[in-house]
Simulated scan of single mutants.
Amino acid sequence: MKEMLDKIDRLQQEINKHRPLDEPMLSQFKAYYRIGLTYSSNALEGNSLTETETKVVLEDGLQSAVNR
């Protein structure tokens, strides 16, 4: 158990070396998780949209997705 906690501490220190994130990187993370989590959540509920289609709906709205 101690080995696992030590590894977690080392990984946390590695993450902390990169903080604070610069704005472009932070924006990329937000977009990735916004789209990825929405896609995954919808897929669990049975939605058949692809991740790309989900991205189009989120970024451009439903009407743009229908016209593609």
Results as ranks from 00 to 15, higher is better:
Thr50Phe: 01
Gln28Phe: 13
Thr52Asp: 11
Ile35Asp: 09
Tyr32Val: 06
Gly61Ile: 02
Gln12Ile: 11
Arg10Gly: 03
Glu3Leu: 12
Gln63Asp: 14
Asp22Tyr: 04
Leu5Met: 14
Asp6Gly: 04
Asn42Arg: 15
Leu26Ala: 15
Thr50Gly: 03
Ser48Thr: 11
Leu5Arg: 13
Lys30Cys: 03
Gly46Pro: 00
Ser41Leu: 09
Leu11Lys: 08
Val66Cys: 06
Glu51Trp: 02
Ala31His: 14
Pro24Met: 07
Gly46Val: 01
Ser40Cys: 07
Ser48Val: 07
Gly61Ala: 02
Glu45Phe: 05
Glu59Val: 03
Leu21Phe: 07
Thr54Ala: 01
Ile8Lys: 08
Asn67Glu: 15
Thr38Gln: 04
Leu5Glu: 13
Ser27Lys: 11
Tyr33Asp: 06
Gly36Arg: 10
Ala31Val: 08
Gln28Asp: 14
Ser48Arg: 10
Glu14Lys: 12
Leu11Trp: 08
Lys2Gln: 13
Leu49Ala: 06
Val66Leu: 15
Arg10Pro: 00
Tyr33Leu: 10
Pro20Gln: 04
Val66Thr: 07
Asn47Glu: 11
Lys55Ile: 02
Lys17Val: 02
Glu14Cys: 05
Gln12Gly: 06
Met1Gln: 09
Tyr32Cys: 08
Met4Arg: 14
Tyr39Ala: 03
Lys30Phe: 07
Arg10His: 07
Asp9Arg: 14
Phe29Tyr: 11
Thr52Ser: 08
Asp9Ile: 08
Thr38Lys: 05
Lys55Arg: 14
Asn67Ser: 14
Lys30Ala: 10
Gly36Glu: 04
Asp60Phe: 07
Ser27Ile: 03
Glu51Asn: 04
Gly36Asp: 10
Ala31Glu: 14
Gly36Ser: 13
Asp22Ser: 14
Ser27His: 07
Pro20Val: 05
Met4Ser: 11
